[in-house]
Simulated scan of single mutants.
Amino acid sequence: MFVTFFSLFSLSGVGASEVNIPHIDKVVHFTFYSVMVVLGYLATPTEKEQGIGRSKLLWYIVLFAVFYGIIIEVLQHVATTDRHGDPLDALANSTGAIVGMLAVRFLFFRVPSLK
């Protein structure tokens, strides 16, 4: 809901900053979607994880995040007057989701050593 609100509602003129960092919005998109995947995985009950498999569940979460990001960009273009959908934002969203998946796999899918 947080991402949806800030994606579709205009906050122009609110807290306008004098600091101008090029493409910082892409970093924000990347970060939001990588965190979304990690939190989505952590929020899933372990019973669900065992029912369909951890890897498949993680792929469902990533696919949801990617499609959600694309839908939000389309809605920004179609349903708002002062926001514009950006394919590079959708790419940053998707890349963030994939990196979030890799982080989950690295942190939670590791096989313990045989020592």
Rank of each mutant, 00 (worst) to 15 (best):
V3K: 03
F9I: 13
L75G: 09
V74N: 04
A65F: 00
A16H: 04
F32C: 13
V35H: 05
S10W: 10
L57R: 05
G96D: 00
V99S: 04
L75T: 08
A79G: 13
L42Y: 10
I98W: 01
G100Q: 01
V62Q: 04
H23R: 13
V38E: 07
S12Q: 15
P45M: 10
L57W: 03
K56G: 02
S10L: 11
S113F: 06
I98S: 01
I72F: 05
S10C: 11
S113P: 11
G85D: 14
L75V: 07
G40L: 07
A90S: 15
P87D: 07
F6A: 06
F6W: 10
Q50L: 12
P45G: 11
T44W: 04
A16D: 10
G69L: 00
D82G: 06
P87C: 07
R110Y: 08
L58K: 02
A43F: 11
T44V: 12
V104Q: 02
F2C: 06
G100C: 01
N20Q: 14
G13V: 11
G100A: 00
V27A: 15
S34V: 04
G13M: 12
F6C: 06
R54V: 02
F108H: 12
G100W: 00
K56T: 14
S7L: 10
F67Y: 02
I24G: 03
D25H: 11
A65V: 00
H77T: 07
L107R: 14
G96I: 01
T81C: 05
I70Q: 02
I24C: 03
L39R: 08
F109C: 06
Y60C: 09
D89C: 05
G53S: 07
F108Q: 08
R54N: 09
V104D: 02
K48D: 07
E73V: 00
V37F: 01
V19R: 14
S94K: 03
Y41C: 07
L91E: 02
R54Q: 13
G85H: 11
P22Q: 12
D86R: 15
S94C: 07
S17F: 07
K115E: 11
K26D: 08
F32D: 10
